[in-house]
Design a protein around this nucleic acid. Structure first.
Lengths: 128, 128
DNA sequence: ATAGATGCAAAGGTTTTGCATAACT
DNA sequence: AGTTATGCAAAACCTTTGCATCTAT
């Protein structure tokens, strides 16, 4: 078991800085553009590598389903899902959708909330 | 304004059939493999085209964030997001995370729920 | 008959990776 | 010195698209 020590390079530092300074939940590409203003020759690969490292370090979170491709569902009723962090199994949660939350969020953002999705993560019956 | 009439081809029919017969929330690729058993020369492109059509028809839903690339957030505290269906803006929802839901889901799936994510969708203040 | 769908293959867009070089500690 | 990170470019991966042909209505 080898322990890897993380270095806080100027690239990594700047990426984290940019991310901490915004509330816009940016994409890797947007971060790339921002960081390039100060480190013009940084490469996109470095951005991605660092975003992954920072996530592993627990400094940032990634907003996406674990998997990189879409999943489809013929059950169009709004319902919640549970995804196993170990085996990747996705299962329906037999659980009433809380429509009240939409109203609350509506008030908070002053917009027009249509629906919401909830995804639960953890370990399934078999994997835990 | 031209109205397009959808045809129920054997490919489209089979894809929907496969999707309705499973609870596994499959990927396009998995569906491709299944359908190929009965329509061996079907192409992946047809799978994707039909999944998009079926979604537009409201027959199925797609489980993913609208955008195809990941977004990152330096706020690692669990919190909810609201995404505008019109302009794509993603904003934090200032709203308490309901930890009780984790417990309820825990009982339902008999697993070990670690956390959950909620995403609200609708139209933002500016776009509504 | 004709608009809509398919198969094939090529292209697109996002993310990862191999390799030689550079930079921390 | 030795390990970790970078830049560049190529590759990988998932999804979309152009085009000629076919098919459902």
């Amino acid at each position: 078991m080898k322990k890897t020590t993380r270095r806080m390079t100027k690239q990594r530092k700047k990426i984290l800085e940019v991310l901490k300074a915004t509330k816009s939940h940016p994409t890797a590409d947007w971060i790339y553009d921002q960081v390039k203003k100060e480190i013009p020759n940084i490469s996109l690969g470095t951005i991605y590598r660092n975003l992954n490292v920072l996530r592993e370090m627990g400094e940032i979170i990634e907003l996406s389903y674990g998997s990189s491709y879409s999943r489809f569902d013929a059950n169009t009723e709004n319902h919640y899902h549970f995804t196993c962090l170990e085996c990747g199994l996705v299962q329906d949660v037999d659980f009433e959708v809380d429509l009240d939350m939409d109203k609350k969020v509506n008030m908070a953002i002053e917009g027009d909330v249509k629906y919401h999705r909830c995804e639960f993560f953890g370990y399934c019956k078999e994997c835990k």
